[in-house]
Simulated scan of single mutants.
Amino acid sequence: MSKLIKHKGIIKDIRNGIAKVEITQLSACSGCHARSYCSASDKKEKIIEVSCNGNSFKTGETVILISNSDIEREALLIAFVYPFFCLVAVLIIVYFLSRNETIAGITSLAILVPYYIIIGLYKKKLKKKFVFSLHKTD
Rank of each mutant, 00 (worst) to 15 (best):
C32H: 05
C52P: 05
I47K: 02
A104D: 12
E49W: 01
T137H: 10
Y82T: 10
H135C: 07
I64P: 01
L26S: 10
F85Y: 11
A79Y: 07
T102P: 01
I64V: 11
T107Y: 03
T59E: 14
K124N: 15
K43A: 07
K20L: 11
K124A: 15
I111R: 01
E45Y: 12
V63K: 03
L97G: 03
L26D: 05
F96L: 08
H33C: 07
R35D: 08
Y122G: 00
P114A: 07
I93V: 15
D70V: 03
F130M: 03
D70I: 04
H135T: 09
I71L: 11
L77Q: 05
Y115Q: 05
A34L: 10
K124W: 01
E72Y: 14
I117F: 14
E45N: 14
T107K: 00
F130D: 01
G120W: 01
E61W: 00
S67P: 01
K127W: 06
L126V: 00
Y37F: 08
K43L: 11
E72G: 13
V21T: 04
A104I: 06
G105N: 06
A28F: 12
T24F: 13
I119G: 08
P83R: 00
L109M: 15
Y95C: 02
S51M: 02
Y116N: 09
G54Y: 11
Y116S: 02
R73N: 10
S27T: 10
A40R: 14
S56C: 05
Y82H: 00
H33V: 13
R99D: 04
K20I: 10
P83Q: 04
A19Y: 13
V63I: 05
L87A: 08
T59R: 12
A79L: 11
S30L: 02
R35L: 09
S56D: 15
C32A: 09
L77I: 15
H135A: 11
F96Q: 06
L91Y: 10
Y37E: 06
A110M: 12
K128F: 00
E45K: 13
A89Y: 02
C29G: 08
I78P: 05
I64K: 05
I48G: 01
K127A: 13
L26H: 10
K129P: 07
L126H: 08
G54P: 11
H33Q: 09
A89G: 04
H135N: 13
A104T: 07
I18H: 04
I92T: 10
S30Q: 05
I106D: 14
C29Y: 04
I103S: 02
V50M: 04
T137I: 13
V131H: 00
S108W: 00
F85L: 15
T107V: 09
N53M: 04
K58M: 09
K124F: 11
L112R: 00
C32R: 06
L76R: 05
I47G: 06
T107A: 15
S67M: 09
